[in-house]
Simulated assay, not measured.
Amino acid sequence: MRRNMLNKLFILFCVLAILSCKAKKQLAVSPKPTEKINPNISKLNAIKSGQTNFTTFSGKARTKLDINGSSNDVTLNIRIQKGQKIWVSVTAIAGIEVARALITPDSLLVINKLQGLYIRKPFSYIYSFTSKQVDYSSLEAILVGNAIPQLLNEDAKMQADSGRTVLSGNLQELVYKLIIGADMKVTHTELANQSEGQSLIVDNSALMPAENRVVPSQINMSSMASSKKVQVNLHYIKADFDLPLEYPFSIPSRYDPAN
């Protein structure tokens, strides 16, 4: 665990939001005035309204990380300032902090406390680990149990299924499927880019109350990107919204840059 923790932390943050960015340009095109009004718009708006809105989020999750068959149990303390930053502290046995990360739409900072290493890179550095189809807002959405925003678009096919709503579609090279419960919460997300050998599946279950809102207490993620296979099982044991939070992060002068 000591040798691989930094790489595992990187892979965790890099693969959670695979495959979103290419869809943005297509979604930015406004429908022409002559186009037919989509009858599913009202349902789509209801789904969007059912997503959890927040300013800040803090959660503590017991987490199992499996990277290419190598498994470790850790605890993640996650803090989010919406649209601005995601702060994560990783603790191992006996509550010892082994790593800390700060992710923004523009940058990626990680320190490995066990090895005295750090990485300070632009957000684009994660393209070394996965494709350029990455979107920061998707990662925020997944961590709080929301639907990935880009997938809630008017071009999606919509189908009722036993009280649930199934959204599916193809945005450029991205094939997706969302299952939304009767409470308008996403229970299943499935993304695939076959041409690049990438996929991401997220399952949410067991909603728990948190500050007059709900969040899935169980979030299971399975991702494949090239030769990297990642399984992440988060079990939130605590979650709060809109509390004042701090995001402490500094790189000690004695730490060396990681290769």
Rank of each mutant, 00 (worst) to 15 (best):
I11L: 14
Y247C: 04
F54K: 00
P209C: 10
N193Y: 08
I78A: 06
S107E: 07
V232L: 13
D256P: 00
M221E: 05
I96G: 03
S58P: 00
L243M: 06
N72C: 01
I237C: 04
N170T: 11
V202E: 02
S124D: 10
I80G: 10
H188C: 00
L65Q: 01
K121S: 11
V215W: 08
L139S: 09
K48C: 03
N259K: 15
D256N: 07
Q231E: 15
I67T: 12
L174N: 07
Y118M: 01
S71N: 02
T52F: 02
K228P: 02
A17C: 08
N77M: 14
L109M: 14
V110S: 03
K228M: 12
S223M: 13
L178S: 03
D155W: 02
Q194D: 10
I201M: 09
A258Y: 12
E154P: 05
M221L: 15
A160V: 10
T63A: 02
G197Q: 06
I11R: 03
Y255L: 04
V202L: 05
I148E: 09
I11F: 13
L114A: 09
S168R: 14
N4E: 15
N38S: 11
K32G: 05
I201R: 13
R3P: 01
R3G: 01
L6V: 07
Q198F: 08
Y176K: 06
Q172P: 05
S124R: 13
K228E: 14
K229E: 09
L114Q: 14
S137F: 04
A28T: 12
V175D: 09
N204E: 09
L171I: 03
P216L: 05
Q115L: 14
F249N: 00
G181Q: 08
N212M: 08
Q51P: 10
D183V: 08
V230R: 10
I93P: 06
M221F: 11
Q26Y: 01
S217L: 05
